[in-house]
Simulated assay, not measured.
Amino acid sequence: MSFFSFLLGEKKKTASVAKERLQIILAHERSGRSNAEPDYLPALQRDLIEVISRYIQINPDDIKVQLDREDNLEVLEVKIELPEPR
């Protein structure tokens, strides 16, 4: 770390900020729920479609968001099918 980055701070990359926000959302949702199906998954899927569409043309059906639970483990699975490059 350089002296200037220490004093001025470094800007975080967009991906790392998004990842941190997603972790906070998931932690918050887990703490307040039992085994009910989370209601944030459709909104998360819409947000992903919106963000990805800014950069490439994508079919909304090519993005799947799913939450799997086993014992005390929750796995958020996001499948995104990107179009072939031309």
Rank of each mutant, 00 (worst) to 15 (best):
L22H: 01
F6R: 14
S53V: 07
M1I: 04
L44K: 01
A27Q: 02
P60W: 07
N72T: 09
L82I: 11
L44P: 03
A15R: 13
V51M: 11
Y55E: 12
E77W: 09
N72F: 02
E50M: 07
P60C: 09
D61K: 14
E29D: 12
K12G: 06
I25G: 00
E70V: 02
I80E: 01
R30L: 09
I58V: 14
S31C: 09
E37W: 05
N72H: 11
R69K: 15
E10D: 10
A43D: 06
K19S: 15
V17T: 09
G9T: 01
S34F: 04
A43C: 04
A36Y: 08
A18C: 09
R33K: 11
S53Y: 10
D71A: 13
I56Q: 10
L82E: 04
Y55F: 14
F3Y: 08
F3D: 12
I52R: 00
E50G: 10
I24D: 07
D39L: 12
E77F: 06
V51D: 02
K13N: 07
L67F: 05
E10R: 13
L76M: 07
Q23D: 06
N72M: 02
L48T: 02
P42M: 08
E50N: 12
K19G: 01
V65C: 06
V75W: 05
E29Y: 03
F6V: 05
E84M: 11
S53G: 14
